[in-house]
Design a protein around this nucleic acid. Structure first.
Lengths: 326, 326
DNA sequence: CTGAAAGCGCTTACAG
DNA sequence: CTGAAAGCGCTTACAG
């Protein structure tokens, strides 16, 4: 049941049991090691993580602060992070920050009091909350944001480039009136990519819609678009959820996609493949992002610059490309 | 920084600090309590959860074993559980069981070694895995299954009743050829509800499709349906994901919903409201289920019977009812 | 290569 | 009502 039992069974001290179980900090004679391992097996011993955490001053857990784990992109991010942390022998303490009654700073402090070894932030933090993270001295990595965050680690995607590619694809279809639907919360790099692609093609800016992320935001944005004197020929949505919400609104009013208006979105979530028409979307490499995040948290020597990975455009039917099954 | 610091600052022993912070097991004089609380405030003290867990033999965390947190229903369940556990002053350790390399039994043991105070199982366990849970002696509650599980707590929904209501609604539309698409993994109570509703209405059983849960399963089932000599007039899907996958397949082949075939599904996830046509669906009361689960885990005297809550049918357009905005 | 022992920061019987 | 002290199960300098 405890390390002492294993030690007794193997006829060694508890220190030796620790040495073999942790692979250090001291060497153990091969035969002794075998005896210990046998004892562990026979007794079905599992170390008490709380004791270890107390002794080490840090638990084998990462905290994940996410605004709302239900939105598909973040649900997939949680999943990828769960895999990556488990691969690193750690657990994930997930906390949603969308409860209005509880200040996020308190949630961060609570996580810290649980001795997490690192904090993954899939959310946007106020500067006050960021300084809490700093003051607590927890290694932290920000995921999915647009660039450097203070001097925390960060990993994301080249949003501008991804959006540019998506927009160029739309331009390649011959569309000239291309709208953008994204969030106004902060300056959106995707919006910049859209602008760049259009101006590079000497095309005028299409309608610009600022709307919340999420299905409803997309729905509302599409309604907005349909109120315009003339419907743009295509729209770039800043997230799959916005894209799906738009599809719903268009479907409801009998506007055909991609015939009346083409749609391309961003994220590459699973759901984008199971709407009709299927969404062409800029896929974020989630597994890779998760691995980088965990590795940054694990490696104390990692330098603190922003890591931007590349999206790749997954072409399906919503942009007007011919149906491709699968 | 530690309890000793607080004690020194307040001029009391560490025991007293514990008494006031934990509200027991001993009383503390009002003035002393105030001094301690002040010290805590001034010093910004937060108890070390690892030390507490070691001392108490149990951490203030619940483990959540879920097959795949990405599927919308389970994503929403995770979210509800996060709220409910946080309300109870606890944290949630989420573990996905869908990694083929790692035996679920090991994941359960790992959770146990982290001293979780209880285990929430949103997954189907083999009997071997169940006996692991038993042998570890962790309080556990099974969520979303069809009935009693061994002698663990369980909370779910009256699936048969929910499906019956959904099917009756379809019958109320005058449809007589009603299919069912659900999983064959185990006997599905929803399938039973479908059978019951049809036989109560003296209607013949429509096509019965066994398909995996998830979008792809729905897509495949719909393709299957369209291969039949004649398309059934309506279909009851065992989950929103199946329903959405069917919508995609129907949309792709130009089959109109609800005109050619009506669809009703199960779960009441957010996405069901943002497809076109919007899905009529039997909504599971997730928040309530989560609260019950946490309460069962928190109350050692709770009796071990299955709690079945009721779904309610959310009527939208996919069944053929007139469009109702919002 | 191995062991005796201190220490991590809590909780809680046991005295007073 | 308050305090001194043992104990929870680990880790790891320190001796040998």
């Amino acid at each position: 049941m405890t390390r002492a039992d294993v030690a007794r069974y193997a006829g060694v001290s508890t220190a030796v049991v620790s040495y073999v179980l942790n692979g250090g900090p001291k060497n153990v004679a091969p035969l002794t090691r075998e005896r210990v391992l046998d004892a562990v097996r026979v007794l079905g011993y599992r170390p008490n993580a709380a004791a270890r955490a107390l002794s080490m001053g840090s638990a084998d857990m990462f905290g994940l602060l996410v605004h709302d784990n239900r939105s598909p992109f973040f649900a997939e991010l949680c999943h990828a992070l769960d895999q990556a942390t488990a691969d690193a022998g750690r657990s994930l303490l997930i906390v949603n920050s969308d409860r209005t009654q509880v200040p996020t700073a308190d949630q961060i402090r609570d996580l810290a009091s649980r001795q997490i070894a690192g904090l993954i932030i899939a959310d946007v933090l106020t500067s006050g909350e960021q300084s809490v993270v700093h003051s607590l001295g927890i290694p932290a990595v920000v995921m999915g944001q647009f660039g450097e965050t203070d001097d925390l680690h960060s990993v994301g995607v080249d949003f501008a480039r991804g959006a540019r590619e998506a927009c160029e694809h739309l331009i390649g279809h011959g569309y000239r009136d291309i709208a953008f639907a994204g969030s106004a919360a902060r300056y959106d790099e995707r919006e910049r990519g859209w602008r760049e692609a259009l101006s590079a093609a000497r095309l005028p800016l299409g309608p610009l819609l600022h709307t919340p992320f999420g299905y409803q935001g997309g729905y509302d944005a599409a309604v907005e678009l349909m109120r315009l004197p003339s419907l743009p020929r295509a729209v770039l949505a800043a997230s799959d959820q916005i894209g799906i919400g738009m599809l719903a609104a268009f479907g409801e009013r009998g506007v055909r996609v991609p015939d009346d208006i083409a749609v391309v979105s961003f994220d590459g979530t699973i759901a984008a493949d199971f709407v009709w028409p299927r969404l062409t979307t800029a896929v974020q490499p989630l597994e890779q992002m998760a691995e980088v995040a965990v590795q940054l948290l694990t490696d104390p020597t990692a330098s603190r610059h922003h890591r931007a990975l590349f999206t790749h455009l997954r072409v399906r039917e919503s942009c007007g490309c011919a149906a491709q099954h699968g």
